[in-house]
């Protein structure tokens, strides 16, 4: 089955995301845009994963768990997992390793967890934009250790990307794919950045507003709608594939 996927969506937990980015609204918009696979990847938080997965299932959409983790070098990386156990391990790892800075909502915005009625059930009091004390290599190792998928985010962007922070993609970095933004093409990125051959590229929306969801996406040919087949397509370890990203 051909699956349209947007695996980089922020919810209201992210201080920079619009307050309309509630789980209910995200799923409604994802359905309108014809997405079948999504991931909520808040800054250093997985907390909206379970609710969004439940809501998404009612629309035949599968929601991966994960977060956009900020490494010690201030590189944003998509860390994607599947089971509730994996999500809790990732959440605990983030909470243990994030630099604790109190959030000032007037400056950075609110960081709230809401329920299916858009009622606030929790407010995160430390700044989710902060970096972890772990470097990118350690975070990749952790994510792989729990069976997750590790994808440096918007690698072409001039801030918070592996290229902006470390100058270039380290040949030794253990990544599963690279995410490029809508501002570049795979060919253009490869021309300017030496990278490992056979590197898998994907593109997502990095949505902070409802209207952005699904405006950039990647198509996958998956045997079935599951994390396993998604991972197979990324790692090229089965019959599932990522359709070419240009």
């Amino acid at each position: 089955m051909i699956v349209k996927a947007d695996l980089h969506i922020h919810s209201v937990i992210s201080p920079c995301a619009d307050l309309e980015m509630s789980p209910v609204n995200i799923v409604m918009r994802a359905a309108e845009m014809g997405l079948k696979l999504i991931a909520v990847t808040d800054h250093n938080s997985t907390l909206h994963g379970p609710l969004i997965r439940t809501l998404a299932e009612q629309h035949g959409i599968y929601c991966l768990y994960g977060a956009e983790v900020n490494t010690r070098e201030e590189i944003h990386c998509l860390c994607l997992v599947d089971t509730e156990d994996q999500r809790q391990l990732l959440q605990a790892f983030i909470e243990q390793n994030i630099t604790r800075i109190p959030n000032n909502p007037d400056i950075f915005g609110y960081q709230v967890v809401v329920n299916e009625h858009d009622e606030i059930v929790q407010e995160v009091d430390y700044l989710l934009h902060a970096a972890l004390v772990k470097g990118i290599d350690e975070i990749a190792e952790f994510v792989h250790g729990i069976g997750g998928v590790f994808i440096p985010a918007h690698v072409d962007r001039p801030k918070y990307s592996v290229t902006s922070q470390l100058g270039f993609v380290p040949p030794s970095l253990s990544y599963d794919a690279l995410e490029i933004s809508r501002n570049t093409t795979v060919d253009s990125f490869k021309r300017n950045n030496p990278i490992k051959p056979n590197t898998q590229f994907i593109r997502n929306s990095d949505s902070h507003f409802l209207s952005q969801i699904g405006t950039s996406y990647t198509e996958y040919n998956l045997e079935n709608l599951s994390f396993k087949c998604f991972k197979d397509s990324i790692l090229n370890t089965g019959s599932s594939t990522v359709l070419p990203v240009i």
Partner: peptide, 22 residues
């Protein structure tokens, strides 16, 4: 590091908090 690649003069001592092999 992208800034250093673009702007650091040769023969400089580079002061940083980055410890990565890059």
């Amino acid at each position: 590091l992208s800034d250093v690649m673009g702007n650091a003069p040769a023969g400089s001592v580079w002061i940083t908090l980055q410890t990565h092999v890059n």
